[in-house]
Structures are given as structure tokens and as C-alpha cells.
Amino acid sequence: MSKENNNKKEEIDRTEVEELDEETLFVVSQTFKALSDPTRIRILHLLCEQEMSVNQIADTLELRQSTVSHQLRFLKNLRLVKYRRAGTTLFYSHDDEHVIDLLQQTIKHALHH
């Protein structure tokens, strides 16, 4: 392929790429922000395996309950975790399979890097 044809192909490819709107950019950046914190990664990784209460998460990860509650609130606001109520206890689980897949793939990549 000649250089001129290559340049035309690049121009066509660029015009086919959709520009991201502000809301999409915000959601993507917030998702990566959520995954940029080691404590939130640990919590999400734990919730990949099973549903847990704040106290169970805190005990398992050896964190203060207030730290776990704060991070869960952040993750819940991004709809990365959800909860169900059983009496007075809230049990948390992950709420976004795409983000969990991304997290697990990234962990696998890091382990084999």
C-alpha cells in the first residue's frame, strides 16, 4: 500500500471513532479512580468471592470498620457494590460484572508480569 493510501486509511479510521461525551468520560475516570486505591481493590477482590458485612470485611482485611464503611460508600455511589439488609446487618456484594472482570484481569496480569 502506498504512503498516500495509508494516510487516507488513517483519516477514515479516525472519523469512525466516536468522540466520548462528558458523562462517559466522567464515569470511566471515576471507575479507574475507584480501582486506583489499594483498600478499595482489596474490598472488591474480597467481594468477588462472597457477600460480606462491614464487620466481616473489616476483620478479614484487618481494617477499621470506619475505613471499610467509608470505602464501601464510595464504591456504592459508583454502583460497584450493592447491599442487602438482613435485620440490622447490611451484606455487601459486587454490583458490576464488567468492573470485576477488569479487576480480575488486571490482577492476573500483575501476577504473571
Rank of each mutant, 00 (worst) to 15 (best):
S2Y: 00
S2W: 00
K3L: 09
K3V: 05
E4R: 01
E4N: 00
N6G: 12
N7K: 11
K9F: 10
E10G: 11
E11M: 14
I12P: 03
I12S: 03
D13P: 10
D13E: 15
E16M: 10
V17D: 07
E18Q: 08
E18C: 05
E18A: 08
L20R: 04
L20D: 06
D21G: 03
E23N: 10
E23V: 12
E23P: 08
T24F: 00
T24E: 01
L25R: 09
L25M: 07
L25F: 06
F26Q: 15
F26H: 15
V27W: 15
V27Y: 14
V28I: 15
V28C: 13
S29R: 07
Q30I: 10
T31R: 05
T31H: 02
T31D: 06
F32P: 05
F32T: 05
K33W: 07
A34S: 09
L35S: 07
L35P: 05
S36E: 09
S36C: 07
P38H: 06
P38T: 04
R40K: 12
I41H: 03
R42E: 08
I43H: 04
I43M: 04
L44F: 01
H45N: 14
H45W: 11
L47A: 02
C48F: 08
C48P: 06
C48V: 09
C48W: 05
C48S: 12
E49A: 14
Q50E: 12
Q50C: 14
Q50K: 13
M52K: 02
M52C: 00
M52D: 02
S53L: 02
S53N: 01
V54F: 00
V54G: 01
N55F: 13
N55Q: 11
I57E: 00
A58L: 04
L61N: 02
E62M: 03
E62L: 00
L63T: 04
R64I: 03
R64D: 07
Q65H: 14
Q65R: 13
Q65Y: 15
Q65F: 13
Q65A: 14
S66K: 10
T67L: 02
H70V: 01
Q71F: 08
L72W: 03
R73F: 11
L75Y: 01
K76H: 09
N77S: 08
N77E: 09
N77K: 10
L78P: 01
L80V: 01
V81C: 03
K82W: 06
Y83R: 02
R84V: 08
R85N: 11
R85H: 12
R85Y: 14
A86E: 15
A86D: 15
A86Y: 15
A86C: 12
G87Q: 07
G87E: 07
T88Y: 15
T89V: 03
L90T: 12
L90W: 12
L90A: 13
F91Y: 10
S93R: 11
S93I: 08
S93P: 07
H94Q: 11
D95P: 09
D95M: 05
D96F: 00
E97G: 09
H98K: 14
H98V: 11
H98I: 13
H98P: 11
H98R: 13
V99P: 03
I100E: 09
D101R: 12
D101A: 14
L102S: 02
L103G: 04
L103P: 00
Q104A: 02
Q105P: 11
Q105K: 13
T106W: 09
T106D: 04
I107L: 01
H109I: 13
H109S: 12
L111G: 13
L111Y: 12
H113R: 15
H113L: 15
H113Q: 15
H113V: 15
